[in-house]
């Protein structure tokens, strides 16, 4: 699905710091990635690796002054939002790029009619009341809600979780965004609803040619939605590449560990389920070398001394000193994307 053209969003060396009572913690440590029109980039990693912080920085939705972008660029359709005025950023938010959130039970205002909450987006971006009303009907229909007129008059508590997530998606679609950011939109839903929501977003993407950033820690979801994958660990993107390639030939031991931990049917030739030992480091911890060292089976001495640079290997790139052919410990060997699904 990916095409070679100007990226809709281009993030360069983004740095985000959380100011806490006990000191500052840099939780996004110089992240760079591009998303092209019509493309889905999956941002993958364990909880606390900085993936939500990254996209909230892109949307400029952090609570200030607690969380602060300290450096880098967020170029959306040619405009660097980090340097832009608040006014410019607000005109992009909800219109050029829109977001779908993790928990549909809490991301809607409980006291406002669904139609008003959707229409509000149109009004905020200069649309008339008439346009707003028309758009509400259109997007509710687009996300597959029966009887949009009635749904628009209802309050969020009158909907189930899956239906609420459809409403949130409808809200994101109101201004026909070029970029949709989906922050674990299926995590809070049960499995059958998850499949519906995934299918819905893919369908809308096919219709509109939106770019999508899909955040998840579920590799099964990644395999289903992603054109390209960016793996995050401790505030860094440690590996990035086309989905098929990352699944079949992981270039970073962390990616390899994630793939090895995908449950798969017994009796297959692949090695049995393995888990990555340990847990992700505290975001405030500053490493001299690679932050994955304590958990890395392939680590060599150099790894704890210096942070590896990003190395391009074919269509993939990884932040690792040791290329896969020099790995000594057992590894997953990769899986095909179909298996991961």
């Amino acid at each position: 699905m990916s095409q070679v053209n100007e990226p809709v969003l281009s993030v360069r060396d983004l740095r985000t710091v959380i100011h806490t009572a006990t000191g500052d913690a840099e939780v996004v440590k110089g992240v760079s990635f591009d998303v092209a029109r019509g493309e889905t980039l999956a941002l993958v990693g364990e909880s606390g690796c900085g993936k939500s912080t990254t996209v909230l920085s892109v949307m400029d939705l952090h609570p200030r002054p607690t969380v602060e972008i300290t450096g880098g660029q967020v170029v959306f359709e040619g405009v660097d939002l980090v340097k832009a005025t608040e006014q410019q950023r607000r005109s992009v938010r909800g219109a050029g790029m829109a977001m779908v959130y993790q928990d549909p039970m809490t991301s809607l205002n409980p006291l406002m009619r669904v139609g008003d909450q959707i229409g509000e987006v149109v009004l905020a971006h200069g649309g008339s009341a008439e346009e707003a009303r028309r758009r509400v009907g259109e997007v509710l229909e687009q996300v597959g809600i029966a009887d949009p007129g009635r749904a628009a008059r209802a309050y969020p508590h009158e909907f189930s979780g899956g239906m609420r997530q459809r409403v949130v998606i409808a809200m994101a679609l109101a201004m026909r965004p070029r970029l949709l950011i989906a922050d674990e939109p299926t995590t809070a839903l049960d499995v059958t609803i998850q499949q519906q929501i995934i299918a819905l977003v893919r369908q809308l993407q096919a219709d509109n040619g939106m770019a999508v950033i899909w955040i998840t820690h579920d590799l099964g979801v990644v395999a289903r939605v992603a054109d390209r994958i960016a793996i995050m660990y401790s505030g860094h993107i440690v590996e990035e590449g086309p989905s098929r390639r990352v699944f079949s030939r992981p270039e970073h031991p962390y990616t390899d560990g994630l793939i090895a931990s995908i449950p798969r049917p017994t009796g297959s030739e692949r090695p049995p389920l393995r888990l990555i030992p340990g847990s992700p480091p505290d975001p405030s911890h500053v490493f001299a070398g690679c932050p994955f060292v304590p958990r890395c089976p392939q680590a060599v001495d150099l790894c704890s001394e210096q942070l590896p640079p990003i190395t391009e290997r074919g269509s993939s790139s990884a932040r690792c000193w040791v290329p896969p052919e020099k790995w000594t410990a057992p590894r997953s060997g990769g899986v095909s994307q179909q298996v991961a699904q």
């Binding site: 607000r90 938010r93 977001m99 987006v121 905020a124 809200m171």
Partner: peptide, 12 residues
């Protein structure tokens, strides 16, 4: 969360 959603819509 819904306040973040509201800000995410680009409201003033």
């Amino acid at each position: 969360d819904f306040v973040r959603t509201a800000r995410g819509k680009g409201l003033s």
